[in-house]
Amino acid sequence: MPLETNQEKSRRMNVSVGALLARYGIYIAFAFLIGILSLSSNSFLSVRNILNVLRQSSMNGIIAVGMTFVIVTGGIDLSVGSIVALSAVVATSLAHPDGAPLIVPVAVGIGVGILAGFLNGVIISFGSIAPFIVTLGMMTIARGAALVYSGGRPIINLTDAYNSIGGGYLFGVPIPVYLFLGVALLGLFILSFNKFGRHVYAVGGNELAAQVSGLNIKAIKIGVYSLSGMFAGFAGVVLSSRVMTGSPVAGGGYELDAIAAVVIGGTSLSGGIGSIQGTIIGALIIGFMNNGLDLLNVSSYYQQIVKGVIIIAAVLLDSKTKSAK
């Protein structure tokens, strides 16, 4: 390693401070939020409330993990909310008391999500159409398919086993929280420790360079949209189980919450930069903020405004710290 001059050393120190802020700013903001909420409401820091928030955040978190992959490639997936509904109605239709064992509705629900995501990926890769357009189309198609499949009626009367996925507890902790944790770990392993994850960053950072480096761009894109669909499908299963209903109108607007979590978590919409850790924190920030504003008796109308401000502020902060670097 070459010797550094003092000047270089001091420059490096500056870079480190900027990089530290850029890297940990989101965690600092999260800690700050928790601190403020604990001080302003007595009921906030109770175990019951925290578990409640974690459970509420889990659905958005699961979807946002998949969305992170898509956004790191520089794409977007608007269809996840509708895929949640499609997966929910298909899975619940197989979860009647006289139906198949638990594994069948769960696997089919996830499979429906993978299929929709796979189609997104194939059309984006081979049709060279903007992801925004393709997934916008899929958003409507999947919603329509959910309505057609269910005849527009919610599907009820599900097995207890199925209902326990979203409604059950294990060691006093709601099961969706474990599922969120599992999905997050899976996403983390794939994106940060796996070859596929590295290739996802490569495509998002510079698609042309990735292509010249011998990467199969089409396969990678199909992979990320399939993953996004898979997690959305899984979220559909968890959601329908939690509310004990397969509703064809469920999941409306979920795509925007997922995108918000990803963006608050520091993932760049232009691709190439981002992390699952950030996304998890992003999802938790949204969850705790909603909860805190509820506890403080802020009207849900204002909550929307606050959420919007936080999304913009997070990205603004992110771009400022990055440009300061």
Partner: peptide, 28 residues
């Protein structure tokens, strides 16, 4: 065409040949 400017020196160097430095299951 050559570099991913957002990635590290290490990740750029191994990009074309990452499979060679992976364990079963594609883990780097």
């Amino acid at each position: 065409y050559g570099l991913n400017l957002k990635m590290s020196v290490k990740a750029n160097i191994t990009l074309s040949n990452l499979a060679k430095y992976c364990l079963p299951g594609g883990f780097v």
